[in-house]
């Protein structure tokens, strides 16, 4: 170990030399290497975590660079994968850490394999579909993690110890859909940094033997408001994900998004996990902010973006015309409709 590398962190009393040694023996998995994933990963690698695994399904685009701190213009020009690019950049920052970037989408089939040997998991995803899969996997394996979300200028985060503190299913109970995503209403990088700062702090606390926060925390960094609610009481004793009688609905495909390729039509049908929770009028309002190719007849909402024609039905079922790849369709759905 290079002398003095972590000296300032060891001086911080709650961590100390003991905590630093503990960190060096721990494995953190970050799901998603976008904005939150990049920010969390860089802090943890600089902090001297023992092993870091980053999972991401995506490639780098120019519009990522405003907030995804590990990537450069050259990476975007070459459309490099986030997971591999992050791995190389992070390894250059700290060669002492064992770092692995996995180019894949975490789902109900591979989730347990990807997360089972983590000491702590950080949510760097951009959609609730993947979060609910993480929630089920970690409830089943009783591993702690920290949810983080950011949008516009708002940061929100919550630490979860399955069985002890409420999980996402206890608090939300359905796959949310509201037509607001970073692609539709935007995001500023300070909201990313605020969320990641909270998530990394919780991760460091847990791995160095300090207690996690029981509060659901929200900060609007632009509007300067702060809220914290102690949610301990919302632990649901009959929760389908984290109670003794859990059925892990997102691992059994009972819930979750379903996709079908409609052969010969260049069309993919996406069926959201929860029917009827989408408001077409609210979605239409959000859509109008990024495209004028829109037709809302009250029964179906049709709009065009990225050369793809979306036909959205009232129950959330959507046809994406001009797409032949199911994963691309899922990503587009999550980007413009949410879930």
């Amino acid at each position: 170990m290079i002398a003095g590398r972590y000296a300032r962190q060891e001086r911080f009393a709650p961590i100390g030399k003991t905590g630093q040694c503990r960190l060096a023996a721990k494995h953190v998995v970050i799901v998603g290497a976008g904005a939150l994933g990049s920010a969390n990963a860089e802090m943890l690698v600089r902090a001297g975590i023992g092993k870091l695994t980053l999972i991401d399904r995506d490639y780098i685009e120019l519009s990522n660079l405003q907030r995804q701190q590990l990537y450069t213009e050259a990476d975007a020009k070459q459309n490099r994968t986030k997971a591999r690019t992050a791995e190389q950049r992070l390894q250059a920052i700290n060669p002492e850490v064992e770092i692995k970037g996995i180019v894949d989408e975490l789902d109900e089939e591979n989730g347990e394999k990807m997360l089972h040997d983590a000491d702590f998991v950080i949510d760097g995803t951009d959609n609730f579909q993947t979060r609910f899969v993480i929630n089920d996997v970690l409830a089943k394996h009783r591993k702690p993690w920290v949810y983080g979300g950011c949008l516009q200028s708002t940061a929100i985060a919550l630490s979860i110890i399955p069985g002890e503190t409420p999980c996402l299913q206890c608090l939300i109970d359905h796959l949310p859909q509201e037509g607001k995503t970073c692609d539709t209403v935007g995001i500023i990088s300070p909201a990313v940094q605020m969320t990641a700062a909270y998530q990394t702090s919780e991760c460091l606390k847990y791995l160095t033997g300090n207690g996690l926060s029981q509060e659901l925390v929200q900060v609007d960094i632009w509007g300067r408001t702060y809220s914290a609610i102690n949610v301990k009481k919302l632990l649901n004793p009959t929760c389908s994900s984290c109670s003794q009688s859990a059925t892990y609905p997102y691992l059994t495909k009972e819930k979750g998004m379903k996709t079908v390729l409609l052969c010969g039509r260049d069309t993919v049908q996406v069926r959201p996990g929860e029917k009827g929770s989408l408001s077409l009028s609210a979605l239409a309002k959000a859509v109008k902010t990024f495209t004028d190719k829109i037709n809302d007849n009250g029964e179906v909402l049709i709009f065009e973006v990225e050369a793809v024609r979306f036909v959205v039905f009232q129950d959330g079922r959507t046809l994406l015309h001009g797409v032949t790849n199911i994963n691309v369709a899922k990503q587009l759905y999550q980007r413009y409709i949410g879930a």
């Binding site: 904005a35 995803t125 949310p176 995503t181």
Partner: peptide, 10 residues
Amino acid sequence: IEIVHFVGGG
């Protein structure tokens, strides 16, 4: 009143 609102971005 405290209102905390889940968001999906990241």
